[in-house]
Design a protein around this nucleic acid. Structure first.
Lengths: 234, 234
DNA sequence: AAAATTAAGTGTTAATTTGACATTAATTTT
DNA sequence: AAAATTAATGTCAAATTAACACTTAATTTT
């Protein structure tokens, strides 16, 4: 049986807001668009959803094609489907992806003309891609307020000053590093390594890595208006 | 010019997880499906996205058709597009909607066979609609941990015991009402009215309403790892 | 080689917030 | 009028936070 015969079909695309952190500031990976319309203009990396794949899968595929990376942290952060947002009706599902800064420099596929830009100072983009970035930023902030996802932007081994400046970037604030460090350490989320990062300071800062068990536990653990104990996560 | 000529098209649908609160527990509004396949089985209210509307618009339309309510609080909470989730390939965008319990009883459209069920004890649903409810619950919890959206489930005038039991429901916990009340009042979010709810207790509890200015201010104001002051929300 | 410099990391303390519990207050029912 | 019920306020010790000072480990300059 063939159902829904008279229902309208639509073009379905994904667009990726690919974010990285260079230790100083957030960056976004943009590409020069390869197809018409708006060919050769800067845009988010995107693509159409194939017939045999989910949108999420499509986003992974597109990301892999550009960066050669798999299993990136990725999350849906909006759906753009206003009629008229492109010449032809296309509903676009937007994902943001977080990439570890230290790996990405050399992995870009040759196939695309791609470039990292400062997140707050990038070229004009096609269609409503600027709005997509805005919602991605917002989702990132909301999510990172509850879940320790910003670690996805850092290498496996990172220092506390690194995390601090990452949080400062994302929320556009100044942190008291001393209090921040103490708070972070008391969470039990970090495991101290016997090794220092000498790149960024004379004294050098100890490397840490994530305690994945605690990482998973921490999810949903800081709910406002609620006592912090025992939230049933079913 | 006609772009994207050779790209595949797909059926795009919306499904709505409609939640209400009856003072005691959360409820979900389900409908008996009107079309094949799976006709006459219980399901989420849904519909196809028309050619001239955005998915969000489609969800509003579908919601209005069922409840006659407009401007409901509504939020995307997932995209279900695995090939094989239905007989035919359909990508479904899921929204959850929050409805004020005191209004909804008499507004249901005659056109649909719809019924409120306890959220934790509802009939089996078609396709992957159960999963949709799970993600809706999860999104609700995450969102409500940062934003005071649960008020959307209450009437304009509400009492503190009402909010407390709502939070108890959503997070499946017991609250110390005394501490909860103190915390809530100190947020400045509530404006005390000169009127009591006598329905639910002998003494009666004072009604409050939301201070919308503070409500908007509160957004993003309780960030873990960050000092609570001055988060630039641009 | 000593002194200056830089940024990391640890301490200290007062103020605030939280959690646990007790009491008082307003109303209806008996 | 007493009993029952639930709202609302109060108390206090413990925990957490914010603000600030100091020490430490290394490198660079003199």
């Amino acid at each position: 049986m063939d159902f829904y015969k008279n229902e309208p079909q639509t073009l379905l695309a994904v667009d990726c807001v690919i974010l990285g952190f260079n230790g100083e500031s957030l960056e976004i990976l943009l590409v020069k668009r390869g197809i018409a319309p708006e060919r050769n203009k800067w845009s988010l990396m995107g693509g159409f959803v194939h017939e045999d794949e989910s949108p999420e899968k499509a986003a992974s595929r597109v990301l892999k094609k550009l960066t050669n990376l798999e299993d990136l942290y990725m999350e849906n952060c909006g759906i753009f489907g206003e009629p008229g947002r492109e010449e032809r009706r296309v509903v676009s599902i937007v994902y943001f992806a977080l990439i570890d800064a230290t790996q990405y420099r050399h992995i870009l596929s040759e196939e695309y003309e791609a470039k990292w830009f400062p997140l707050d100072k990038h070229p004009k983009l096609i269609f409503d891609h600027e709005d997509m970035i805005s919602t991605a930023k917002h989702t990132l902030r909301t999510k990172a307020a509850l879940y320790p996802i910003l670690f996805e932007l850092l290498p496996e081994k990172f220092t506390i000053p690194q995390i601090a400046s990452l949080y400062e970037c994302v929320y556009n604030i100044d942190l008291d590093k001393r209090n921040f460090s103490r708070k972070l350490l008391s969470s039990g989320l970090l495991i101290k390594l016997n090794e220092k990062d000498k790149e960024n300071s004379r004294k050098g800062a100890f490397f840490y890595r994530l305690n994945m068990d605690i990482y998973k536990e921490k999810i949903m653990s800081f709910l406002r208006y609620l006592p912090s104990w025992s939230v049933d996560e079913s």
